[in-house]
Simulated scan of single mutants.
Amino acid sequence: MTTPFIRRATPGDTDAVLRILRQTYEATWKPELTPDAIARFERSGHTRRYVDERLCAMYVAESGEEVAGLIDWDKDFIDALHVSPDHQRHGIGSKLLLQAEAAIAAAGHAQVRLETDTFNHAARSFYLRHGYAETGFYPDEEWHSGFTTVQMTKKL
């Protein structure tokens, strides 16, 4: 495995970012959703709209010639951190997270925040290993999934 290279996303990364988001949805969230929630999400077009709106703010990790992961943040909040299942557990997520934390700190923020779901044990463990604390639990009102959202924070 080559050392990942982090760079700002470009319009040419659109298909790769959509692929990674689809892969992580299929592997992580879809198995937890009800059939109604799956249908509602897949009809929504949310993923494509999100990428169209936020791609220019994202950073991607390249491993070899392939985009293997992405991160997106705004102010002190990490909106998304996804690594292709084929590239997980190779340090790509850690490198992306460090990139975002450094930029958030450089912008003058004293903490970084993010959300995940209680069922997502892998993500919760990853963030806990990186110094995050679970600071709040509340129903997922954005997606109406029936999940419980976990807010996590880290002082910078």
Rank of each mutant, 00 (worst) to 15 (best):
P85N: 03
P85D: 04
D86F: 08
H87G: 02
R89G: 00
R89I: 05
R89M: 03
R89K: 14
R89D: 07
H90Q: 14
G91N: 00
G91E: 03
G91A: 02
G91D: 04
G91H: 08
I92G: 01
I92P: 00
G93Q: 06
G93E: 01
G93L: 00
S94K: 13
S94V: 01
K95I: 04
K95P: 00
L96A: 06
L96N: 04
L96Y: 03
L97Y: 08
L97H: 08
L97C: 02
L97S: 02
L98Y: 11
L98M: 10
Q99H: 15
Q99C: 10
A100Q: 06
A100L: 09
E101G: 03
E101A: 00
E101H: 02
E101D: 03
E101L: 10
E101R: 13
A102T: 13
A102D: 11
A103T: 00
I104N: 03
I104Q: 08
I104S: 01
A107K: 04
A107M: 03
G108K: 07
H109L: 02
H109A: 00
A110M: 07
Q111H: 13
V112Y: 06
E115A: 12
E115F: 07
T116W: 06
T118P: 01
T118Q: 14
T118V: 14
F119C: 08
H121S: 13
H121C: 08
H121F: 10
A122C: 01
A123L: 06
A123N: 08
A123H: 07
R124L: 10
S125Q: 12
S125A: 15
S125I: 01
Y127P: 04
L128V: 12
H130E: 07
H130L: 05
H130T: 03
H130N: 13
H130W: 08
G131H: 10
G131R: 11
A133Q: 14
A133V: 09
A133M: 10
E134M: 13
E134I: 15
E134A: 15
T135I: 13
G136H: 12
G136P: 08
G136Q: 11
G136F: 09
G136N: 13
F137W: 12
F137E: 14
Y138D: 11
Y138W: 12
P139L: 11
P139Y: 12
P139A: 13
P139G: 11
D140E: 10
D140G: 08
D140L: 12
D140Q: 12
E141L: 12
E141Y: 11
E141F: 09
E142A: 14
E142F: 13
E142W: 11
